[in-house]
Simulated scan of single mutants.
Amino acid sequence: MEPPEGNTWFYIKNHQQQGPVGLFELEKLFEQGILPAETFIWSKEMNCWQMAKSLNILPDSVFMSKKLEQPEENLASVWQELEKDTYPNGRPFVRYLARFFDLSLFSLVLMTFVSIFSPKFILESSGIFIFMLSLILYVLVEASILSIFGNTLGKSILNARLRTTNGETLNFLTALKRSIFVTAAGMGFGVPFINFICFYYSYCDLKKNGKSTWDQQIGTVVLYGQVGLARILFVSLFPITLLIAGIMI
């Protein structure tokens, strides 16, 4: 299979999804032995992450010389290990945890602000209404955060980055379009039952294609890195703690 003629490539090294680099620079990384032939790579013209070896980016002679230097490996087991450690099919739970952490943090700030100026509104509003209101307002807030800082706090904690397929940070309009798409198609605007259906289909879509429908259509990509258990627990427990505190109050 011939590699696509894209000029922007992402690759995985040391369990981190990195890039973008041009095709010439990518070839040099392989030629100099910095990246092995089994490295997962991706460009916006590809449907999913694939091993560089399967795309014939390097001449066959380069791969042959490496085979002579090393004993024959079980490529099936190598693939399984790489697939397990480098997340070529996306990481739905990392994305969901990051979003719910960011939403919970925003809701806490919003409710604190509103309770100071209008405590009656908090007392008379249902939890579902407050969640939906926070979800809609967060669309604008998230777009602003992404365009200014390049990432949200939740994604940063979980070592995930959101970029365009050209490797740039999102501008406000692109970030706003993506936030609306995620809120509508990925979360069903927070409407009970509908949101669970949206969660399920977006999860299946991400696991099957390696990227969500909105990322594919808008031209964005989420890059993942390794993340420790302590960070996962912190991001997971924060929304739960706020929920319990809200019920008790």
Rank of each mutant, 00 (worst) to 15 (best):
T165V: 15
E168S: 12
L229Y: 06
I148Y: 15
R178W: 01
R178T: 05
N209H: 13
I157S: 04
C204T: 09
S144A: 11
K177F: 10
L133Q: 03
T183Y: 09
L229E: 03
G246D: 05
L153R: 01
I136L: 15
Y200P: 04
S134R: 00
N195E: 08
T165D: 07
F234D: 02
A185W: 00
K211L: 12
Q216Y: 13
S156A: 12
F149G: 05
G154L: 10
G228V: 05
G225W: 00
S179V: 06
F172K: 04
S236P: 05
Y201M: 07
Y200K: 14
T220W: 02
F234V: 05
L162M: 15
A175F: 14
F172T: 01
M132S: 04
E168C: 05
I180M: 10
R231W: 05
I244M: 02
T165N: 08
N151H: 08
R178I: 04
A184I: 14
I136Y: 06
L137R: 00
L237M: 11
V139A: 02
S147I: 08
F196M: 15
P192D: 01
L146D: 06
L158D: 01
Q216H: 15
V191K: 13
V227E: 05
S202H: 02
V141L: 06
F172L: 09
T164F: 10
L137E: 00
K207I: 10
T164I: 08
Q226K: 15
L229S: 11
V222F: 13
A185L: 12
I197Y: 13
V182L: 15
F199T: 01
F238M: 12
N195Q: 13
V139P: 00
V141E: 00
L176E: 01
A143P: 02
A175T: 09
K207N: 10
S236E: 00
A185F: 06
L170C: 15
R178S: 10
V182R: 14
A230S: 09
L176N: 08
S147M: 05
V191T: 13
G228H: 03
